[in-house]
Design a protein around this nucleic acid. Sequence first.
DNA 1: CGGTTGTCGCAAGCAATTCGCAGTCTAGGC
DNA 2: GCCTAGACTGCGAATTGCTTGCGACAACCG
Lengths: 153, 153
Amino acid sequence: MDTDVMLGPVLRGHGHRLTRARQLVWETLRGAERHLTAHEIAAQVHAVDPGVNLASVYRSLTLFAELDLARESRLGADSAARWEPAHPDEHFHLVCTGCGEVSHHAGDLVEQVRAHLRDGHRFRADTVDLVVTGRCRRCAPRTTDAPPPRVHP
Amino acid sequence: MDTDVMLGPVLRGHGHRLTRARQLVWETLRGAERHLTAHEIAAQVHAVDPGVNLASVYRSLTLFAELDLARESRLGADSAARWEPAHPDEHFHLVCTGCGEVSHHAGDLVEQVRAHLRDGHRFRADTVDLVVTGRCRRCAPRTTDAPPPRVHP
DNA sequence: CGGTTGTCGCAAGCAATTCGCAGTCTAGGC
DNA sequence: GCCTAGACTGCGAATTGCTTGCGACAACCG
């Protein structure tokens, strides 16, 4: 995973400063295994430094997105945006309606989509957001009416 | 396009009533060529009957979604949800960053994705939301910095 | 080690969506 | 047709997720 970016130099290179808030947000984002909402990020940052404000978390995330360090996506019917560090590789999201887990997987699927659009529709694909909602292996056998306990509420 | 559903019977069949608000929302949705936000739908409904409240538009849309008559999707970084009548066929969305147009296309792409997940990841895909942002044929040559006039602001 | 001037924390503001409630209108029985 | 139960609605207020204005503060250049 190529998220081992030196945050300071990148920021400074664009005329920005490396601050505590940005550093903590970045570390949280990089350490996360799944996609986080701004509130989840803020909570983890607070655990380290309660002085960091939610607004600063949003501002940091927005800045990271501008610098292509992070990526925002809205998944499923969820109204809150979720964030992840930017990868060089294309991937797609799996959202489980059972446990609420959001994982992502790399694969040539996205490249296939891109090629299909370029050749068949003359549409120059910029970002391809492939969001699949359904039941993960663990939740698959259950019915929709009685979902198993959410592990990520 | 198989959106020629008799709204009344479907509603009544599920113990609901056919009201003016629901009828107008449904007609607006069916008559639309592109995906509409709740506010856009409300505006068009208002043009016919200003007495219909925004809350009722939301309630109608939610009900339609429950009955599989309509489908909600969140496209790109847009914070507002967009709605379309439900189709029998799977499709994917193309969102142009130039003119803002949202179109959708049917194709076997979605079925390919579904098969790939079932076979390769044991993930039972429920809905596949394939959102592609990029430049449509018309907007492709332009640069990102000076986008052409948005036709759907 | 200062001096700029980006950034931050805070609190107010905004947009999309939902909720509570009392009055209204649909559907079904007569 | 007419009547009644209760499903729906309009309204306004509440929630949620996010953004912004502003004075204080602290990174970074020299």
